[in-house]
Design a protein around this nucleic acid. Structure first.
Length: 283
DNA sequence: ATGTGTTCCTGTCCGC
DNA sequence: TGCGGACAGGAACACA
């Protein structure tokens, strides 16, 4: 899936199309994604104005004038495709409905946002905005990595005594929100920490060092418009650039990019997922 | 409580 | 060109 930077990029692309618009028509083309969709979702969306498009972790959150919030998770392969946008006097066409177009939102101005998700690991739900934080998908999620609640003392405290590998700890959304396989690999490489090392056995100084590194990796990726792999595209269809910024992810056998390090990037498997790291400079 | 492995689903790519 | 298997950005769930 898109990780936090990709979701934020999608949010920024969608906001001008969706914010302030009324959903003139909602078409829910199947009853479920990863979980069942609310049976009356189309009816509850139709006629609602989107007041604000926000993000929490990897979730897009559309606050509606009806007092509800539409929660959207892109899973591994979810995309939000935009069409029918007016560019001066030119109006972009709507493409024909394609495979895996599951939810279609027609905006009052003629623009269309289509949720397409081949693997269907994505999710949507509608919940009262006042109860959003208590929603089961959101309530246990840890602090935003770019927010003030994520700081050195917090991370040191959360990793203390943990026997799980550093990789697994950073992937745990309860500890810190929004990181996925790619950015965990990148952050651990920049911090010089072996992904297999037990989280509770990393010196506090080095754990603290992860905080600015995580912020930097995510910040750079957002600034570059996210990365773009396989299914993922920015909302406007353009490719993200951060994929060119990966230092270890997907670079098995390549030279370690750390200055002065003569190591070679290795791929290992942790809990059935690929990990990329340099055994020479990550300890 | 904590940690690990499995599972959901489809598409793509690589080797033969 | 076809076919089988590995693999893909997530994360809930079952189980030790």
């Amino acid at each position: 899936m898109p990780e936090l930077p990709e979701v934020e990029t999608v949010r920024r692309g969608l906001a001008p199309v969706m914010e302030g618009q009324v959903i003139a028509h909602a078409d829910v083309r199947r009853p479920d994604l990863r979980w069942p969709l609310p049976a009356d979702m189309a009816a509850r969306l139709t006629g609602a104005r989107i007041d604000r498009l926000g993000r929490r972790s990897k979730y897009l959150l559309a606050d509606l004038s009806t007092g509800e919030t539409l929660i959207v998770h892109l899973g591994m392969s979810g995309r939000m495709l935009v069409s029918g946008v007016r560019l001066g006097t030119f109006v972009q066409d709507h493409p024909p409905v394609q495979a895996h177009d599951h939810v279609v939102l027609e905006m009052g101005d003629g623009a269309r946002v289509t949720f397409n998700d081949a693997r269907r690991f994505g999710a949507m739900d509608l919940v009262a905005t006042a109860a959003l934080d208590a929603h089961w998908l959101l309530r246990d999620i840890g602090p935003e990595p770019l927010g003030n609640a994520f700081h050195e003392d917090y991370l040191v405290a959360r990793l203390k005594g943990r026997r799980m590998p550093a990789k697994a700890a950073l992937l745990d959304q309860r500890i810190v929100a929004g990181l996925g396989n790619i950015y965990v690999c990148e952050a651990l490489h920049r911090a010089g920490i072996d992904p297999r090392r037990q989280a509770g056995r990393i010196a506090a100084r080095r754990v603290a060092g992860l905080v600015p590194v995580i912020r930097a990796v995510l910040g750079e990726a957002i600034a570059a418009g996210g990365s773009s792999l396989r299914d993922y595209r920015q909302s406007d269809g353009a490719l993200g650039y951060f994929q060119h910024g990966f230092r270890v992810y997907g670079r098995e056998g390549g030279p370690c990019p750390t200055p002065g390090c003569a190591g070679t990037v290795r791929r290992t498997v942790q809990s059935a997922r690929s990990t990329f790291h340099c055994p020479r400079c990550q300890r």
